[in-house]
Structure formats: structure tokens, C-alpha cells
Design a protein around this nucleic acid. Structure first.
Lengths: 203, 203
DNA sequence: CTCAAAAAAGAACGATCGTGCTATTTTGCA
DNA sequence: TGCAAAATAGCACGATCGTTCTTTTTTGAG
């Protein structure tokens, strides 16, 4: 990999971390340059504009999600095992140290939902793909007879995504230490999988 | 009401609308003054600092939520009727014209979850109160025997709040026209209430 | 109507940001 | 090693923002 690409990747890795804390729209070229050990103009030359930088951050965060959540899930056999691995990995990533300020893509969905442009377009495409992936794995589990008969697959995908958002909200804002457990219990209730920690539900 | 208070309320009403579109942290005194027909310094004098303005916007949005969602629900009799009214009003407000850019409080939760200060404190208190209210109405419905026996009330509150967030996300970012219907179907599945539009679930 | 107090306007400041231009350093091949 | 090209640094600009200070307009009670 060329030096340019190496430097660019290092910038983006740090930028995703920063975006998780302050949001993509509040990234500044100056502070990002300082964190990367570059000058403002040196960093700027890698992207050409702030919007291009923000778009690259979105794409880097999406690629990171695929690497850390989707790919590991696809090592599991098709059906409930793969579905459970996807949901479990998705939830647990909210508590991993790699994103100290929460998921930058969920935050960006709120930041850019009213700002047409390339960034919003990329977010929409990415979120649609995430949802479609979740729904496809649900459908495969349903086809394999591992979900309750008559399950409404699109509704289940909608509800599971809500569990993830609720866990994110409770963890990041309310410091609710039971949020991961609640999300996994919710998955168990909706999809009938064995519930980790079942029976330990406190108040 | 004094003229000062009248002007301040008009400013805040417009500010909440703007915050729903661009977020609380990106409100600017200049554009807010222009929208209110005031000068920058004229508007500034009402709050004394930008942070005080943002805090007032949070409090105004919270008061608006109580007026438009919570109070109407409490006109219903205790139990499932009141619970259903709260959830229904909460979801339907996402589609009312009063907040064109989505719920500013949900967006602010993502904006400020990593920025300690008075604004975050106010958001935490407000979100905790919302959740406690939802959970209290669930408990009352449960005590009245209107929920499935053995229902996990805190988990139900967590899941219902997830439905609201999922509806918000699907509506604001993905332009999913079925999002309200999905949230209400989800409520029906979790709480056993009659589902409006049941059976019309498309893809 | 009078006039003091309240409310708003106007102008200017320091700071910060994105961006463009030029000079300097570093890289990698001949 | 020499040198062209790539990568980065240095510097300055216009714009925007929050804030302060002073002046002008508006309000409402006597």
C-alpha cells in the first residue's frame, strides 16, 4: 500500500473515533490534523474538501461495521446461529472500546437526516443494507423453521433494530448497565433463542 | 405575560423547529435572530450565552412533549387505554408537521451523550422521566391484568422505546412509509392490544 | 402626554474554520 | 547517489460565530 493510502487510513481511523464522540458534522480539519500529527493543509490535501472527508469517514465506519460484525456472523451456519451471531455482535460492539462515543453511523443518521447530499445518500444506502442483511438472516431462520410459525419477518427486523437503538440510547445517555442484557433478552423473546442471563433480569 | 416572555417564547418555538432540522448544537444566534425578526444582540440579550439558549431549547422541547403526548394520554383511564394512548401519541407525533426534522430530543441524545454539562444533564433527566412514565403506565396495565401474565415490565419499556426510535429512524432517514404501522404492530405484539391496520403488513 | 425603564439595534472584537497558494521536505526509482 | 515526483508544511485569506459595548427605539405606568 502506498504511503498516501497508509496515511489516509490512519487519518480515517482516528477520524472515526473522533466522530463517535463529537459527531461527523463537527469534525474539524485542524483538530484532526493535530491528532494525526499532520498540518492542516497536509491533511486537507488527502480529501480536497471537508465534505469529502466526512464522506470518507462514513464509508470507513461502514467498512468497520462489516469487518467487526457482519463478516464474523457469516462464519456461523445459515439460520438462527448466524442471526444470533449478527445481533449479538451488533449489540456487543456498542460496549467495545473501539467506539468510545457510541456508533457514529447511528449518530450521523440523526445529524444528516435533513441535509440532502452525498453524505446522507451514503448513510441511507448503508442503513438500508444493514436492515436488509438483518431481514435476510431473519428470513433464512424463518425458512429453516427456527422462528415461531407465522412470524412477521419485516416487523421482527424493525423491532430488532429498535432493540439496538434502545441499547445504544440507554448505554450512552442513561448509563444503564443492564442495556446489553435487555437487548439480548428482547432478542430471545422475539426470536425464541435461548436467552443469555435469562432469569437474572432485575428491576 | 410580559413582552420579554412573549418574545422569548416565540424565539424558542422557532428554535425548537430549527433544532429538529439541524440539531441543537448547530443552532446559531444569527440565523435564529433572522428567523425571529430580531437582531443578533437583541436575541442574545434574552439568554446571555449560547449554552443557556440551547438549554432553554431543550426545556421547551421537553415541555412541548408533555403537552402534546403525556397530558392527552392521562385523560384516558388508567391501564391499557392510557398506555396505548401514550404510545400512539408518541409515535404519531413523529409524523406531525410540528417537528419537520424529527424529534430534537432524540437527536440531542446523540449530539450530547459525550459532552458533559448542563445540557446533557437536562437531557438525561428528561429521558429518564420519559422512560419512567412509560414504565409506570406499563406497570399499571400489568397490575390491571391487561398484559400477558409474567410480562417483564422493564424489558417491555425498553422494547417499546426501541420501537419509537426505530420508527423515527425509518421515517426520517429511510423514508419508510410503513414505519408508523410497524411501530403500532410491534406494540400490539408486545402488549396484546388490538393492532390497527393488522393484516395489511406488506413486505 | 412624560419620561424612566425595558427592549432591541448597531457596530466591532477576537477566535475559529475551510480553503487556496507557495515553499519545503520526503519518497522511491534510475 | 541524484532527482523528479509525491507528500507535507507554512502562511494567509475571507467568512462565520459568540460575545461585548454603546446607542436607539419602544414600552407602559403616573
Amino acid at each position: 500500500m502506498s504511503k498516501k493510502a497508509l496515511t489516509r487510513d490512519a487519518i480515517l481511523q482516528q477520524a472515526v473515533r473522533s466522530a463517535s464522540q463529537i459527531g461527523i458534522s463537527r469534525l474539524t480539519i485542524g483538530s484532526l490534523a493535530e491528532q494525526s500529527g499532520l498540518s492542516k493543509s497536509g491533511l486537507f490535501a488527502h480529501f480536497g474538501s471537508k465534505e469529502a472527508l466526512q464522506l470518507a469517514v462514513v464509508q470507513a465506519a461502514q467498512a468497520q461495521f462489516v469487518e467487526e460484525v457482519v463478516k464474523p456472523a457469516f462464519t456461523q451456519p445459515r439460520g438462527m446461529a448466524r442471526l444470533h451471531a449478527l445481533f449479538h455482535g451488533w449489540v456487543m460492539r456498542l460496549y467495545a472500546g473501539s467506539m468510545p462515543g457510541g456508533c457514529p453511523l447511528l449518530a450521523a443518521a440523526y445529524e444528516f437526516d435533513d441535509q440532502p447530499g452525498a453524505i446522507r445518500d451514503a448513510l441511507v444506502a448503508g442503513q438500508r443494507w444493514q436492515r436488509d442483511t438483518l431481514q435476510r438472516l431473519l428470513q433464512e431462520a424463518h425458512d429453516a423453521g427456527e422462528l415461531a410459525a407465522g412470524s412477521n419477518v419485516p416487523l421482527l427486523a424493525f423491532m430488532l433494530f429498535g432493540l439496538i437503538q434502545s441499547a445504544h440510547h440507554d448505554h450512552q445517555l442513561l448509563d444503564n448497565h443492564h442495556s446489553a442484557q435487555l437487548a439480548l433478552q428482547g432478542f430471545a423473546q422475539l426470536c425464541g433463542a435461548p436467552a443469555p442471563y435469562a432469569g437474572q433480569a432485575g428491576s
